[in-house]
């Protein structure tokens, strides 16, 4: 077959193997974060493969950044929704208080 170059997915796997000493030295409760980094990178390996950057580290860092950007956006949206819900709740509390100012619990 013609293709001899490794796919980007395989190159990410190779980075993960090369960095095993790093992972081994991490405190156990820090290791999941290390693993998540590679999960994040792999989740965009398809697009990075099409970009075909000559430097696999650049591709890796960009993939992680993008995945984190998505995670931030999702979190911001959740926060915004929760803030809205909280505001609505606050308004209801205020309204209830305004309706019965005399019934405040001791």
């Amino acid at each position: 077959m013609g293709r001899t170059r490794r796919t980007l997915r395989d190159q990410f796997d190779a980075i993960e193997r090369e960095w095993t000493p790093f992972r081994r030295s991490l405190r156990r409760h820090h290791q999941p974060a290390f693993d998540r980094l590679f999960d994040r990178a792999r989740s965009h390996a398809d697009a990075a493969g099409q970009q075909n950057a000559p430097d696999r580290w650049r591709a890796f860092v960009f993939c992680v950044l993008l995945a984190q950007e998505r995670a931030i956006a999702e979190r911001e949206e959740t926060i915004a929704q929760q803030r809205q819900a909280l505001d609505a709740l606050g308004e209801r509390v205020d309204a209830l208080e305004a309706e019965s100012p005399g019934d405040r619990p001791e």
Binding site: G2, R3, T4, R5, T7, R9, R42, S43, H44, A45, D46, G49, Q50, N52
Partner: peptide, 10 residues
Amino acid sequence: TADRGGFTFQ
């Protein structure tokens, strides 16, 4: 650029 296969999604 050339030495690649088809496109595969993750």
